[in-house]
Structure formats: C-alpha cells, structure tokens
Design a protein around this nucleic acid. Structure first.
Ligand SMILES: [Zn+2]
Ligand SMILES: [Zn+2]
Ligand SMILES: [Zn+2]
Ligand SMILES: [Zn+2]
Lengths: 127, 127
DNA sequence: ATGATTTTGCTAATCGTTCGCAAATTAGGG
DNA sequence: CCCTAATTTGCGAACGATTAGCAAAATCAT
C-alpha cells in the first residue's frame, strides 16, 4: 500500500523550518540540524524538502548564488516579503491582481492565469 | 586601458536574443547558433550572457528545471508576461506598486524597497 | 603591419543536487 | 510483543549545469 511514514528526520526538518521563518538552503538546514545533535543525511534533507514542497508546506526560491532555498509557509496563495537584514519572511495577500489582469488584457491582449511576486525591504523589527 | 571589444560571437548571441523574444538557456542558444553555421563555444555563450546581464540588456530567470534562461529586454524597470504556449515575453509596466507598498507598511510594518513579479498566461496570438 | 589587450575555445574542475542500493525504521496485524 | 512487508535512511557515486585556466586567435589603436 502507498502510505507515508512519520519519521524522526522528517519531524526534525519540518520543526526546524517552522521555527526559522526564513529561506534556508539544504546545506544550511543540514548544518543547523547537525549542530543540535541530530544526524540527518544531506540527501534526506533534500528528499524531505521535495516532499514538503509537493505538499505545499514549503515554498522554494533560488537565491542570488543559484542555490535553492526553502521556507515553511501556508499552502494557500500568497506572496513573500523578505527582510534584507534578518531574512524574516512574511506572507502577504494580493488583492491588487485584478488591476494587473485588466491592464494586461487591454494593453497586451494577454490572458493572465497565474503570477508570482516577491517583495524586498526591511521588516518592522529591523527598520 | 579597459576597453570592450566588439566581436563576432557577441554580435551573434546578441542578435539571436533580440530576435527570439523568449527565455532561452545557454545550451539552447548554443544549439541554435550551431544550427546556423556559427561556431560559438558554450563557455563564450555563458560569458556573453553574463556580460549582457551586467549591462542590463538581458534578464535572467531560473526555469522549472533549475536551469538559467535569458531574454533580451529593456534596461529600465519592468516585468515580464510570459506566454505558456509560445514562450513570447512581453514587457509590462507596474504602476500599482504604490498600493502594495502602502498595504505592506500598514499591515506588516514592512518598508518596501524592491520587488519582482512575473505573469503567466496566453499571449494575444495564442489565445 | 605591430604590439598590447581582450576574447575565444578547449578541457578540466566545481559544486549543488539526484541516484542506487543495502541496512535501518516504521506501521500493522497476528 | 514479534514478524513481515513497505518505506525511509545514509552513504557514496553519478550527474549536469556553470565556472576556471590557459594558450591561441581576434580586435583595435598607433
Ligand atoms: Zn528583519
Ligand atoms: Zn498573488
Ligand atoms: Zn503565445
Ligand atoms: Zn515593478
């Protein structure tokens, strides 16, 4: 049967991601877990991240060096405001998309069906 | 002195990018040039893309397989509407950002200083 | 043309990510 | 509990896109 096991490594990785609300690379997650006496293999980190990604529990982002980074977030549609100082990620809704959709249709004849956006700046704490 | 040479490979790569208004990977550019009897090395493609990127003449994007892709576009601030069918990229302006900036500040205390966005759908021709 | 400078083309190295497989864990009866 | 089947882990090797090194070729000003 096609079940899904609940294991120690998966719990640790998931817990870490939920605690650290910022984009982390697989290597960073691996290093952080290793510091807290949790021996998880790097490949397990990658596999778990892939799993969480398909379950929409983490979102992936390629950073400026080309490395993939991951953050725990809601499975529903939203966007991320990323603090340049501390890395904190905040989820923000997007209502203003209707105006863009209209703009695209009238000016370009483009039928919008999806979009992605990211915000950068300083969070309340770092400002 | 620190001059910049105008060479055959660079012209070919630039010309190709200006003709194909869609995101292409280095390997695709290499293959396309090779088909049209232009022997350019893959590393030259990479180097030229890096050059054009710093000159803001192309913008880079990581596709769904993790590969970097590049498209020729304006050096001024804008966003891209990408056709899911033919790949055509259209440049679109963003005026509605003030509303997002306000929303972020009042609801999250977030000081916005930059943003990125992409639109996906069908272009006028493919609709 | 000449010579200094930049660019190219190969190839080899790099490095994040994925794969393969045997050993270890898990879940679920009996 | 104990057994077994199914899944997951850990390790190392393999992979693939990108970068680096360096001698040879191309460019440009004189
Ligand atoms: Zn912050
Ligand atoms: Zn949205
Ligand atoms: Zn199209
Ligand atoms: Zn904008």
């Amino acid at each position: 049967m096609r079940t899904e096991y609940s294991t120690r490594p998966r719990e640790q990785i998931t817990a870490l991601l939920r605690k650290e609300r910022r984009y982390l690379s697989a290597a960073e997650i691996y290093a952080l877990l290793r510091k807290s006496r949790s021996k998880v293999a790097l490949s397990t980190v990658y596999r778990t991240l892939g799993l969480l990604e398909t379950k929409r529990e983490v979102s992936q982002r390629v950073d400026e060096h080309g490395e993939s980074t991951y953050v725990s977030c809601a499975p529903t549609h939203h966007h991320h405001a990323i603090c340049r100082k501390c890395g904190k990620v905040e989820e923000v809704a997007c209502e203003a998309m209707e105006s863009f959709a209209g703009e695209l249709r009238t000016h370009h004849g483009f039928e919008l069906d999806d979009h992605a956006m990211e915000f950068f700046g300083r969070c309340a704490a770092c400002k």
